[in-house]
Nucleic acid binder design. Structure first.
Lengths: 206, 206
DNA sequence: ATTTGGTTTGACATTTTTGTCAAATAATAA
DNA sequence: TTATTATTTGACAAAAATGTCAAACCAAAT
């Protein structure tokens, strides 16, 4: 064997990491196995040795991406928190992931376009969505905020999610480089927490 | 000739419309000329007769998409308006386009990812961006709003742009069909106008 | 009716990308 | 050292997609 101990796993990881990058950047259809192999620093044929096909490799990548994301939210117990606190916890959980993996968003968005049902089955975050929607509705009925729950929910996701998904576009518009933009993103977490306080502070609980 | 009069142009339009749909849904790499031909109801070889190559066809599509978008904004004269009014005008201009072409967003986002420089050259909307950023900064300096201009700008784009870009994902989360979601989008314009009033009302002008 | 010219079609060529396989290579164990 | 097994490699096959071309087709004009 060429590797000792657990080095086979290491190469699988190496490939997966390379594949993550390329798939995130180019999407499934646009990604080339040759490029993934290049990034991983191995031959394309070797890649087939570890992952039978492009589909299998992609599955591995998206499964891992989603499980990483779920880990952030899975440990989150927001059951008994106020709407305000729920949103803040979710924001922090999401930012901790997105900051280290800025391509995640556009990747997920595109996957939802390609295979909506499959993605939903994989994510299964109905719990969060329903719970937060319910709270929005309660807050509306209690007169704390006004409008439609869904619109608020969409807004919350928008301001959190979009800046990452639109990174490339925003950079062009704001005329700043990767580093500058990531600075904005780091500062944005605080901005959003503030936004939540401003708009969704719960007078009842606390 | 099979067609009379201007029917050649008609078929070009037919193809372009089919291509718009398929490119928007699948992206450049994922789109198949065969599928475009099928949607247009012509043979794939005929497609080549009207557009030499996939690239040429794509160029035609994106050029038209952008010019459609520009038309909405080009006629807009926001020079002497307050920040609040500027934002509202832009929102309305954008929604009038996006409602009729919900795939536009994710399409633009992906194109920015693929070819950032090329896209920026095509769009050239620096005018709007700079002007609105400037106004945000003025409002901040005047103490009317607080925070960082860029963050507010990103938020504005997020709440306007994202709901379309993430249509597929949001539908899964909110568990609603195309029609329901478009209803939310139609209502959203008013929601955003309200949002702008709430957050960016200019006490000085008006 | 025949010619003319734009349009369509199907067969084929080319290119690109993915997938396979057996031989070569490298590492470990006997 | 040799046998064994895992891994890499290059040549090749297969598939998928784009692109080309000439012949067939069709409608209008002569």
């Amino acid at each position: 064997m060429l590797q000792v101990g657990e080095e086979k796993k290491d190469i699988e990881e190496l490939i997966k990491r390379a594949a993550k990058k390329v798939f995130a950047k180019k999407g499934f259809a646009g990604a080339r196995l040759q490029e993934i192999a290049d990034v991983a620093g191995i031959g394309r044929t070797s890649l087939h040795y570890y992952y039978k096909s492009k589909d299998k490799l992609f599955d591995a990548v998206i499964t891992e991406k989603l499980s990483e994301l779920k880990n952030r939210f899975g440990s989150l117990n927001i059951q008994n928190l106020s709407l305000e606190e729920k949103l803040i916890h979710c924001t922090k959980a999401y930012f901790s992931k997105a900051i280290t993996d800025p391509d995640l968003d556009i990747f997920l968005l595109n996957e939802f376009n390609r295979k909506p049902e499959k993605m939903m089955a994989l994510i299964q975050n109905h719990r969060f969505t329903k719970e937060i929607l319910k709270d929005f509705n309660q807050a509306i009925q209690a007169g704390q905020i006004k409008g439609i729950a869904q619109q608020h929910f969409i807004t919350f996701l928008s301001i959190t999610f979009f800046p990452f998904a639109a990174k490339s576009m925003m950079q062009q518009m704001l005329q700043c480089n990767d580093e500058d933009y990531m600075q904005y993103m780091k500062a944005r977490e605080a901005y959003i927490v503030d936004f939540i306080h401003q708009n969704y502070q719960s007078n009842s609980k606390k």
